[in-house]
Amino acid sequence: MIIDILVITMMITGLVFFTGTTVGIIRFPDFYTRVHAAGKGDTLSTVMFLGAMSLYILRDFSGESLLTFIKLILIVLYIFIASPTATHAIIDAGYEFRVPYWTRPSDKPSNEDDATDINKTMEDISI
């Protein structure tokens, strides 16, 4: 029972992050920000889903389920190494392609709530 609740919670969390990835890929303004959404949202949500799966598999414990569990862990480890690498390859190719770059339309100080100190220091450095 407790395992069921844990599995359901983890899966719904993973689904929320998957949704964040998808919506980010559709809504973000340029290629580089889309890469951010794709590269980060997928790792944690995949881990959530596969963790829920491994809990569900280990519920009836046997030698075979242990092997399946180890393979799931292997997939998780592999995705942790491969996903940033694939992201890096894609964004490097896009940079080589000179994909148009989106910046803020104008730096008018309209958003006082967002204008933190770090923003000011950044501009000081860049000048």
Partner: peptide, 12 residues
């Protein structure tokens, strides 16, 4: 990683 995912999902 958890912070990053929450950040990007919140942005999206």
């Amino acid at each position: 990683i958890i912070v990053a995912n929450i950040h990007i999902a919140g942005l999206a």
